[in-house]
Simulated scan of single mutants.
Amino acid sequence: MNKNAVMALDAQYYLPVFARYPIVLERGEGPYVYDNEGKKYLDFLAGIAVNLLGHGHPGLVKAVAEQAGKLIHCSNLYYTEVQAKLVQKLAQRSGLERVFIANSGAEANEGAMKLARKYGKLQSESKVEIITAQHSFHGRTLATLTATAQEKYQKGYEPLPQGFSHVPFGDLTAMEAAVSAKTCAVLLEPIQGEGGVHVPPAGYLKAVRELCDKHGALLIFDEIQTGVGRTGTFFAYEQEGITPDIVTLAKGLAGGVPIGAFLAREEVAQAFHAGDHGSTFGGNPLACAAALAVMEAMEEEGLLDNANKLGQLLQDKLRQLAQKYPGVITTVRGRGLIVGAELAGQGRGIVEACLEKGVIINCTAGNVLRFVPPLNITAAHIEEVIAVLDGVLKEHGAF
């Protein structure tokens, strides 16, 4: 089918919930994707931080193909070796003793909040409040969009679930005022991704950890976007010298195969009993095999070091562009290979111009160019992106 035919089918039958760009992607190889007209694009969005190993990674392809030939799905009424191996690896990597495998980030966050509520009620029937940060993003189910303190995602879905409150991200004074005996958990992204790649002040997350301990509240880190090496360590929280009570993962964990997970301390996990939570597809052998392949590649290919080194190079290059175009880029921030370049105006036009020139990035929060490429990119790929962006900004001029 040609591009127009595909787009016409989508327009006729798909729910009108996506503002898609007018290309039809057909295949990928490494950090590149190709549309059905043969045009090549350098993919620095990676499925929104999902395609951790790029496209067509041999180890991932082999693991998925082999597992598909053996067993794709198995009910959680039974055991599988591949699931057991994955939860062992995640538990050992995190220092959190228990793991539940789901299908998405929203499901992982739902499960984490359910567990926090159940654990809180063991202490007091009133210990049910969950505190999140403004401009966060935790998912699109009713509970997770309530936790997502952005009105644009909540409008039209009222009444929203009760028991949530929101404070400014990085504001310790506001957090101290909000946490009380009724707080069962504080849920934070170590770096806000969808909210604009916001990095909290130094020491903030550690101070929140101490505050939660003081009030008997759980600390939950949403590492849907920052986890699995994106920031240069497997979990972003490792860089803060702390450990949460619960952490959630998804996106890059299986390199593109849908998966989610939440991990918890043993004491917290024991609040759940058989029948308290579940998932039909969660932890299926195909997704688990893909996740194991991703974790193996990360270890064997030095992807954490690469994310640190290449992330710093990307920020340095973007700051050079900010100096060259001071009326366009105002701030560059991030950690590892989650990087944001804040603009003085709206960014969609710049994203569209880059796409036309064969580079895929995106704009979040309206005015922040977001770069979340595969973790196995090279310096040459960064130079290619910067050259295209330089040309686009030159043509764009100041806002």
Rank of each mutant, 00 (worst) to 15 (best):
A149G: 15
T378N: 11
P159Y: 13
P244W: 02
G327F: 06
L249I: 15
K324I: 05
G105K: 04
I329A: 03
V6F: 14
E267G: 09
G193T: 05
A185S: 06
A178G: 09
L52P: 01
A68Q: 10
A5K: 11
G334W: 06
D171R: 02
M1P: 13
K394I: 06
R27L: 07
Q150Y: 08
G229V: 04
E37R: 09
Y325H: 13
E189H: 02
S165M: 09
I242E: 06
F399W: 11
G397W: 14
R117V: 13
Q323F: 04
Y325E: 05
K152A: 12
G139P: 05
G30V: 02
Q346A: 14
Q320G: 14
G227L: 04
E395N: 12
A133C: 14
M113P: 14
G255I: 01
L355C: 10
A185Y: 02
L393N: 07
Q67A: 09
A5C: 03
M295K: 10
L321S: 08
Y237M: 00
L337Q: 10
L96Q: 01
G38L: 03
G30W: 00
P168F: 03
G275C: 11
Q239R: 14
V17Q: 08
L393Y: 09
N103M: 15
A353Y: 08
N367E: 10
E266T: 03
V33T: 03
I72L: 09
F262I: 10
S94L: 05
L318G: 03
P258R: 01
I360M: 15
A116C: 15
N2T: 08
G256M: 05
G195L: 01
A149Y: 07
Y14P: 08
H215N: 13
L286V: 11
A291I: 06
G282F: 02
A178D: 04
G302L: 10
Y79L: 14
